[in-house]
Each structure stands twice: as C-alpha cells, then as structure tokens.
Simulated assay, not measured.
Amino acid sequence: MVRYCRAFTADFFLRARRPGRVRAPVGVLDEATPVVQASLTLAAEEIRTRGCAPGPVRGPRGGSCAAGRRASESRGRASGHRRTGRTGRTARGGTVTTTIGFIGLGVMGRPMAHNLLRAGRDLVVWNRSPEATDELRAAGAVVADDVDGVFAAASTVIVMLVDEAVTDAVLGRGTASFAARAAGHLIVSTGSTSPDYARGLAADVAAAGGRFVAAPVSGSRIPAERGELVALLGGAPDDRAAARELLAPLCRELLDCGEVGGGLLMKLAVNLYLDVSIAALAEAVNLAARAGLDLDVFDAAVQSGQLASTVTRVKVPKLVSRDFAAQATARDALTNTGLIADAARAAGAATPLLDASAALYAEAVALGAGRDDMSAVLRAIEERSG
C-alpha cells in the first residue's frame, strides 16, 4: 500500500508541474510546502529504485490491535469506589493518608487529576505553580505544601511533568531527598521522556527501594478531559498491572509495552505520525487559503473523505478559524520531534518527513507560538509563504 501511495503522490505532483496543467500559485507549492516536498522526494526515490508505476491506492482493511484491552471494565470498577477521606485540607509531613499522589497540574495533568477525583479516588496533589491547585482543592483534593508532603501521604504517585530536567528537579534526583521519596513508593510517570532517561530513572528508583512505571499517555487536553487517553505501559509485569488499575479512570485504552522504555518508544513512533500530520494539515490549509478556496468547504471536504479522523475534526476547524488555544503546545511538539529524532537515529531509521516538520515547529516557536496549540505551526508556513 505504501508503494502505491508514494507512486500516486509522485504522479499527482509531477503532473501538476507539467506545462498546461493546473498549478498552485508561485511561492505555495515549493517554498511553503516542505512536508509535500519531503513526500515527493520519497516518492521519486521509490519510483527510481523500484520502478513502481502510479496506480490505484489499494490495501487491506484496517484491523484492530489485539495487544491491548479496553479500560471500560476497570473504569466501571473504579467509579464504584467512594472517597472516604476529608477534602480541602493541606498535607503536612506524614499526617495525611490518601490513596494517590499527583504531581504536575498543567494542560494535561489538571484534567487527569479531576478524572481521578470523579472516579472516587482520594487524591493529594502538588504543582510548582501553586495557583494551579486551587480548582483541585475545590473539587476535593488534598493540597500538599511540598513534594515531600505528597510522598508522605501516598504510596503511589503519578508524575505528569513537562520534561526530564523538571522531573529530576521535582523528584530531587541526585540529592539525599530522592531516596527518601522513592523508597517504598510506586512512581508512575505519564509524561514524555527519552526511553534511555526512563530506564536510568527506573534504575535509580529501584536502588532506593521503590518501583517505577513509565506510562506515557497519548492524547491532548480534550481526550484528557473526557477520560479517553491511551496509556502505553512500560515496567515490570506486576507494576504494569498496578499502573493499569490506577490509570483506568483516565483512559479508554491501556496497552502493555514490555519493560521500562517500551511504552515511550511506542509513543514516539505514534507521535511521529501525529506531528507530521498536523504540519501537513497546516500546509494544506495554507494552500487552500492562498488559492482562494472556501475554507468551510475545504473543512467539509476533509471531514467527508477517507482521511477524516478525530485529529482532523479537531484541528482543521482550529486551523481554519486560527484558534490556537493550546490542547498540546507547539513547544511540546518541538520537544517531541527531538525525542523522536534521537530514537530514530539510535534505531538507524531515516525520518525525512519528521525533519521537515521539526524545522517548522522550531520556526513557529521562534515566532512566539511556543505556548500556542501545535496547530500554530501554520504561522511558520505562512511566514515562509511571504
């Protein structure tokens, strides 16, 4: 199927460039379509090396992955729990007993913590910016004074932090505090880091007498609010089982990905597809706008076609209306492209489409869109278009 798709892409754009054919406006097809150009280069290479001719795009029907299991049963069990602790208190030292600790209440962490509360779990939370804890306190969470308050109050702690440096700083890695926090605890990291970093952190947690699961979640703010994330679990079998039960109220799917690092590698592979897709959607919207097309009709055409998906239903309207309120930020997308590139180089995998997309995300961040939604990569494409 890949062979036919590449051939079809090459045929379409090569035909578009021939004399007498309809062509995109100057400055649109080449200078401001880096993802298309990268795709075209790959397609041309395929034709040269394999001699494949353009033809109909055919392939097997999509199948379902048997490796995972739905979280609905676990979510149902979780929703039957009732919170028994008092609410709205402040955790000091080891005086508060609660079930789950949660550190990191950003764009993703806040709705995840809310869903744990809705499932009836006792929750103690902490965030580097204290104001982010106010709505969790109002919803019934216990707010710790500091990180040590979380670890004193809970034997299982979820961390949803922005990157490796922040994770190390919050956990106190490399200091005497780290061993005291990790000992006797199950730490579940749901953010995105490199697989090697997670393996190193897991080794340090184990040396301190704790357990560690790297369970990055796939999805953005809206799936997080709806409890429809996908968790990719990496760790020892017993620890994965514990994390599965813990994360069930947050997810529609929980997939076992082997030892620590396996889930992160899986997420990086998935995010390669996502990051390139969002850049390609932005490129398509820019072309449609500059060619004078009705963008509402363009949106309808995308949503009515075979490429329609949850991503297109969310991102195309945002691109058309220039609504860049963050669901997943452009800076996060740029960070992810770096992690993906490192993993790809280690595996000996070429990433021409990722490389083109990464340059666009970097340009968008440089233009001041770092805190905007990743669909703001459109700004970089518009800047290239002049």
Rank of each mutant, 00 (worst) to 15 (best):
S357E: 09
A91G: 08
F151Q: 05
L367S: 02
R199L: 13
A308N: 14
A152Q: 14
M112L: 07
A139Q: 02
S177N: 13
V124L: 12
A141Q: 03
D342N: 10
F102W: 09
G370A: 01
V162S: 15
L123E: 07
L272N: 05
A214F: 07
E45I: 06
A176W: 12
F212G: 07
T41D: 13
V22W: 07
P237E: 08
D146V: 08
R226M: 02
A289I: 01
T84E: 11
L360Q: 10
Q327T: 00
C65K: 05
R211W: 10
G68S: 14
A179F: 07
D145Y: 05
G258W: 00
A132R: 15
A328W: 00
A91P: 07
D30H: 08
R86C: 09
V170A: 15
R313K: 11
V166E: 15
A333F: 13
G85T: 11
R86Q: 13
L250W: 01
N336Q: 08
L378A: 10
D296H: 14
T167H: 14
V124P: 10
R345N: 14
V57H: 08
H114S: 08
L14K: 07
V35W: 02
T329A: 03
L161T: 09
R137F: 03
D122Q: 15
L354D: 12
V157D: 13
N115G: 09
N286C: 06
A180K: 15
L354T: 11
V311H: 09
A224M: 02
G27C: 02
L360A: 05
F8H: 10
P223V: 03
D204I: 09
V36Y: 02
R290M: 01
D163T: 14
L272V: 01
G370V: 01
L334W: 11
D122G: 15
L295Y: 11
R75N: 06
A243P: 06
A71C: 08
L117Q: 06
A248F: 00
C52K: 02
A138P: 03
G59W: 11
R313A: 07
I187H: 13
R331H: 07
M160D: 12
L254W: 00
A282R: 00
T156L: 08
T193F: 15
L378P: 03
V124G: 10
L117F: 02
G234I: 07
R173V: 15
G80A: 15
G88H: 14
R379P: 07
A242R: 12
I340D: 10
D294F: 12
V320G: 03
C5K: 04
V107L: 15
A358L: 06
A333N: 03
L378D: 00
A362M: 00
G106I: 04
V22I: 04
D275A: 12
A43K: 03
A330M: 02
G338A: 11
A180Q: 15
Y361Q: 04
Q37N: 04
A350G: 15
R121E: 15
G109F: 06
L281A: 04
V125D: 09
L247H: 02
V270M: 06
D148L: 01
A169Y: 14
A291Q: 05
R379S: 03
A78Q: 09
I47W: 04
A269C: 11
A344P: 13
R70I: 09
A369S: 05
G219R: 01
T95M: 10
F12M: 12
L339K: 03
